[in-house]
Design a protein around this nucleic acid. Structure first.
Lengths: 234, 234
DNA sequence: ATAATAATTGTCAATTAAACAATTATTTTT
DNA sequence: AAAAATAATTGTTTAATTGACAATTATTAT
């Protein structure tokens, strides 16, 4: 096969930062590494990009292998490229972040990877530059969530406004007035109120809502203003 | 040297989308390709990442070689990875976008690459997936400029408010009321008015301003609201 | 002097935000 | 069965911001 001669070839991998929300706190999914280097340490889930697949396809393949879930929200984050980031040989790593409904995952858990959910505040040390990847992913999550309705990917298809608020509060590390939050989110026109209520969380019960992304474009600026001065965006 | 065996190694390159502003319109810098494949076609400036450098360093090296400028604003955009994006062999390309003061460039132009500035509306067809790279870069530029003071990188260190406004209008493909724009930008506290005026553009003359990034964090939300419903963000 | 031009500042009604208060629907306790 | 407790939802009020447009200002050209 002809090629570009005299140029160095390298390994290219993907690593996935997987976020979930348990109703109280944002969590991250880590695996315990089985092979050297870094055997026994915690790490992000990753793998090499194969010949016939794109990086997106590789990330999806790896994520499905880990969680059993297909079609989850996955977005390319950043490519990490320091020459010595892996001690064995040079590896470029294309990092992706994923948002999954943690309850869907729990049913289908595939434990061959010794995977575990961690609170972000209790995350252990990770191999290589994975800690830096996670911190960039957290920042990007806030960045994106301040502008687009992506946090809904972390919730079940029917959810209550108070649950949504506690997710926003956890992501942005702040609190909102509940009355104002509920009106603001309603004014985006994205939420369709269901007939049923969730009675587990409170006596009065909170209405379930479903997301209707169709007309969020019209009221895009209202999403922008849900979080006035989003923590960690600067 | 030991390594991860049985895994495929690939070429990894960087490509740079270079934006400039001539006072009227946003422009992009392209080069005419000298080698096959795609000889004679227009393309982004790029090159392979070398053994001892990170992708950031490679992008900086390539950009300095093209423009003679150092320390320009450069940000990683996205890694393009379709297996057949280059017809010769598989190449991962880490795309970067750069913002430069076009007037600085003109003084130092290095023409060994047959580089030319194009209006975005008059951009020719590009090789491989470079057109897709440019369109993603334009979107990211709007995205970032709606939240952060990066468009200033395209202007000389002293600039007038009307010039800044015309840049915003070109990037977001809209128009603003000049009175309101000038007050909004002033209220961010980022601009320091100079004593001199620019008398070329008008009879009255417009004050020069300098950027003072120090206290833009305090009024971050005001930058967010400079552009109410930024075109192309969705 | 006057007109022309574009920058800058002024005005005001309409909208939105933020803080906080009141009401509502339900379950638990008395 | 009534009362208390709880958390969701809706109301109220004031302050701040926005957007549209008008007036003023500083200068050059006629």
């Amino acid at each position: 096969m002809p090629g570009y001669n005299y140029q160095n070839h390298s390994l290219v991998a993907v690593d996935c930062i997987v976020f979930g929300f348990d109703g109280q706190n944002l969590k991250i999914l880590l695996i315990k590494r089985k092979l050297a280097p870094g055997q026994g340490m915690w790490s992000l889930m990753g793998g090499f990009v194969q010949n016939e697949e794109s990086a997106d396809e590789a990330a999806n393949r790896i994520l499905t292998g880990l969680t059993g879930l297909e079609g989850v929200y996955l977005e390319q984050l950043h490519t990490f490229s320091k020459p010595d980031r892996d001690p064995i040989e040079r590896i470029f790593s294309i990092a992706y972040f994923a948002l999954i409904d943690i309850h869907q995952y729990e049913k289908q858990i595939n434990d061959q990877y010794s995977a575990e959910w961690f609170l972000l505040s209790e995350m252990p040390a990770l191999i290589f530059d994975h800690t830096e990847m996670v911190s960039m992913a957290r920042k990007k999550l806030r960045y994106k969530a301040a502008m687009h309705p992506i946090l809904f990917e972390l919730l079940p298809s029917k959810f209550t406004v108070p649950l949504l608020q506690s997710l926003f509060e956890d992501v942005f590390e702040t609190t909102f007035d509940k009355g104002n939050f509920s009106r603001k989110i309603a004014s985006t026109g994205m939420l369709l109120r269901q007939k049923e209520k969730d009675k587990l969380g409170s006596k009065k019960g909170a209405y379930y809502y479903q997301l209707d992304k169709k007309h969020y474009k019209k009221n895009f600026h209202k999403i922008q203003r849900l979080v006035p001065n989003p923590n960690g965006l600067i």
